[in-house]
Design a protein around this nucleic acid. Structure first.
Lengths: 212, 212
DNA sequence: TTGCAAATATGAGGATTACTCATGTTTTGG
DNA sequence: CCAAAACATGAGTAATCCTCATATTTGCAA
């Protein structure tokens, strides 16, 4: 058996921890830092984001930044973690009550649309997840997230096909999910029309796999 | 059809050209530089690769490195370009003479295996394609490469299904191809057993899509 | 209130590293 | 053989991440 990715995510790759804000004042300042980082990433991309600029825009000193974030990647990681937590809740809710093939088809199709829309609308998400692969820690986060999401799909599949081999179902769900993320990333890096076609094609392909 | 989808930084073009080696001596030195870079990437990853180290290991000065490569990314790009050219030739050869469904199934399955094996065996390829998506130029190279490869698939599909909508076939081929690259990248970042299962599942899924 | 430790804030400076450029050397073509 | 082009060099520049000694603020018990 593999590591069940749901309860604890292996975030040891990330740099050494820093003090977490315990006072009201510092919690607000950390929020401002993340907000500044988010804005800068949206404007220029996370690679071009400068720590000094983040500090300046947040109205804090460079030192304060490093009081709460061990390094630059940690800021991006913190933002990424928020997005994944948010979308995971959404996915769980959408798939929780699915119990028949038709329901799965509807829910899955809707999820893909939401995901696609999110990427189209959120420059930060786009930047983070298309620059993800460079950072090992982010790659791990993405994998863990994907595994967790795929588990919801796996649960549905097990309900729909009780007789099937569980490992095969897990593999299918994980693969289909990762393909979806890849498809969406691909779709947003070509022009809109082709992107729409690609997402639609992915949906057909995935549903055919899931509903058979 | 251009990349009109990203709020990238203003001057994110491929770096300005540098003098190409025209003498025998310098051609050999450039080879040594690429060799050194390749070795260092295999050992530590392209991110940790230091220009000074590349120069030292190649037995040249730092200035000579910059005589032929405008910047660090250009070295990685040059290596990536070699791999893509090589594999494209391989793909073209494998798909050129396919004319029936069974032939496509065999050729495609074999191609996926070769690709998977290549990634498993070549640390440099692994690093470049799973470690540097952050780089816009590399992302473009990958897309262009994928499109070119998908065209071979499209040609086969058009032969097998003359009546079908050409755009739909193109979309399918491009998507299936990109899914394959994503599947292989996924497979090499999990343990071998699960990776094998994922690649096998992808093959089934892709072939079902291609042969129907 | 007062005193004090822990938490927080600061920014000049250390350390690293991609990249430049003025200068010297080798090769090429006429 | 010579001038020009190509090539080689490496100390120096600039940019940037991050540290750390020091100063300030906050929580809280006496």
């Amino acid at each position: 058996m593999e590591d069940a990715a749901a309860p604890v995510s292996p975030q040891e790759q990330i740099a050494s921890p820093r003090r977490a804000p315990s006072q009201q004042r510092s919690r607000e300042r950390v929020e401002r830092m993340l907000g500044a980082a988010s804005a800068l990433i949206a404007e220029q991309g996370s690679d071009a984001m400068r720590m000094g600029e983040v500090a300046e825009r947040a109205g804090v000193s460079i030192g304060s930044l490093y009081q709460f974030f061990p390094d630059k990647r940690a800021i991006v990681w913190a933002l990424a973690e928020r997005y994944t937590a948010e979308s995971q809740a959404c996915i769980s809710a959408a798939l929780k009550d699915v119990s028949d093939a038709e329901g799965l088809g509807r829910a899955f199709s809707e999820l893909v649309d939401i995901y696609y829309g999110l990427f189209l609308a959120e420059p930060v998400m786009r930047d983070i997840w298309s620059g993800t692969q460079a950072d090992k820690a982010l790659r791990q986060l993405e994998l863990a997230d994907s595994r967790a999401n795929a588990e919801f799909l796996t649960a549905v599949l097990k309900r729909l096909r009780p007789g099937a081999d569980p490992i095969a179902l897990e593999t299918t769900a994980f693969l289909v999910w990762q393909m979806g993320e890849a498809a969406v990333r691909l779709a947003i890096s070509v022009d809109r029309q082709e992107g729409d076609r690609l997402v639609a094609a992915y949906k057909r392909m995935a549903l055919r796999e899931l509903l058979t």
